[in-house]
């Protein structure tokens, strides 16, 4: 094997790597917020909504969970303009990521909702709590606490999945890596460095999730 490693040349591009990584983090974090929101709404719709509403939510979840993210991405960017929706690459990426994560969060949150004992809801009613209060304090919070680890794993998968959005010209970390690869052909060093950055980001997010858990859930028993 006659290959000379040239990490020095690659590491010289660190400001661009950092810029790409920051966009990756931004896209992922926003997708987590939107995705969880979609998930909570659709899970409530599936569990407590009227039948047509529950059915629409179920169809959304099944369709997204049984088709590849890459194809969803192509759809949002290349096909939506046909009906007049024109989004720039980063927004299109964020939309596709949120829709994808939303479907998975729906299933996870729903599993949490089902784990809340009926007696608990009845107890809330007996205490004279209003419907929204019951949903928020008695159903939703315990439900999310119950499935928090699963949600976090899904969030990390969204971060990792964001590497695909370079396919529609979003300028995140993988896109920069691909561009650099076409200029320098130092493929091994580039993708090794970028993989390391993703690993650090994934562990970082996990650390933040663990801290958040301690902060919000731990002292409530």
């Amino acid at each position: 094997m006659s290959y000379t490693f040239q990490f020095g040349q690659i590491l010289g591009y660190w400001p661009q790597f950092l810029q790409g990584a920051l966009l990756t983090i931004k896209l992922s974090a926003l997708a987590m917020v939107f995705g969880l929101t979609i998930g909570v709404v659709c899970a409530l719709a599936r569990s407590y909504g009227a039948r047509p509403v529950a059915w629409v939510a179920a169809a959304y979840v099944e369709f997204i969970r049984n088709t590849p993210f890459l194809i969803q991405l192509y759809f949002v960017f290349f096909a939506l303009p046909n009906i007049g929706v024109r989004l720039d690459p980063n927004t299109a990426a964020l939309l596709a990521m949120s829709i994808n994560l939303g479907a998975y969060s729906t299933e996870i949150v729903r599993a949490g909702l089902e784990s809340v004992p009926v007696g608990q809801i009845e107890a809330g009613r007996a205490l004279g709590l209003r419907r929204l209060q019951i949903i928020r304090f008695i159903v939703l919070l315990p439900a999310i606490r119950a499935v928090y680890p699963a949600l976090c794993s899904q969030f990390v998968l969204t971060l990792l999945g964001s590497s695909i959005v370079s396919a529609i010209a979003a300028e995140e970390l993988t896109a920069f890596a691909n561009s650099l690869n076409m200029q320098t052909f130092r493929s091994f060093e580039i993708y090794l460095v970028v993989t390391a950055i993703y690993i650090v980001m994934a562990f970082g997010f996990r650390g933040i999730f663990a801290g958040f858990h301690r902060l919000v859930f731990a002292n409530r028993g």
Binding site: F77, F78, A79, P81, N82, R86, D88, P89, S166, A167, I168, A169, E171, A175, N178, S179
Partner: peptide
Amino acid sequence: ILRFDDGPSTVQAMLSGQ
């Protein structure tokens, strides 16, 4: 400058007005 991974994606972006 929007960089796509291959030619077809670029053409598709042009045709869809992106």
